[in-house]
């Protein structure tokens, strides 16, 4: 099962990258990302493609070392939209609130996407390996003055996310759980080529 999911993830990425590549005639990602926290690892690295000016997708690998609550290996897929962009001047742009969805997959024996046969059917209703998240991102982008340079722009961002199980917990306990308890954050840098 885990292999199948991984394969699906890889296929998805290929599908995305291929459709872009046909336009661009290459497979080189449009951007690379490195992120701290944000529920996809202590640190994570990713590559992504711009689908158009206001939509992008990316795949990330993240790791949580044992000394900060791991070990965990996580693959995540993001899809994000930019509804608003403010241009400050020639070089700077602010994207105050990008919206997105994300799925994360945790690897390891303790995480199941199909519950083992020792459980009766529907014993647990969720899957422990796969989480669905909602995202917001706020970023500031610096575009290099020289359009010929290898690196076209650098963006710093802060991202907020929550996941399906947190939302379920809050929905049933809105009197006692603070909304901000289920909002988790991360920060990152995105370099566009």
């Amino acid at each position: 099962m885990k292999r199948r999911l991984l394969l699906l993830s890889i296929l998805f990425c290929f599908a995305v990258s291929n459709s872009i590549a046909q336009k661009k005639r290459d497979l080189i990602p449009d951007f690379v990302v490195t992120q701290y926290a944000g529920s996809i690892g202590y640190g994570s690295m990713g590559v992504g493609y711009d689908l158009n000016k206001r939509a992008r997708t990316s795949i990330h690998y993240g790791f949580v070392p044992e000394r900060v609550g791991g070990k965990l290996h996580i693959i995540s897929l993001k899809f994000q939209l930019t509804p608003v962009a403010w241009r400050l001047n020639e070089n700077f742009q602010i994207r105050p609130i990008d919206l997105g969805v994300m799925s994360t997959y945790h690897f390891g024996d303790k995480f199941h996407n199909r519950w083992p046969s020792r459980y009766p059917d529907h014993y647990y209703w969720w899957t422990s390996s796969l989480r669905f998240h909602l995202l917001t991102e706020s970023s500031i982008t610096y575009t290099l003055p020289n359009p010929q340079s290898f690196v076209r722009s650098v963006a710093g961002y802060i991202e907020f996310n929550t996941n399906d199980l947190y939302v379920v917990s809050l929905a049933q306990n809105y009197k006692s759980i603070n909304f901000f308890d289920i909002v988790k954050s991360g920060v990152g840098i995105r370099i566009r080529f």
Partner: peptide, 13 residues
Amino acid sequence: GCSNQLEFSPNQS
């Protein structure tokens, strides 16, 4: 945002 909780994973121990 920064005053909010940084999370490495919902599954961190």
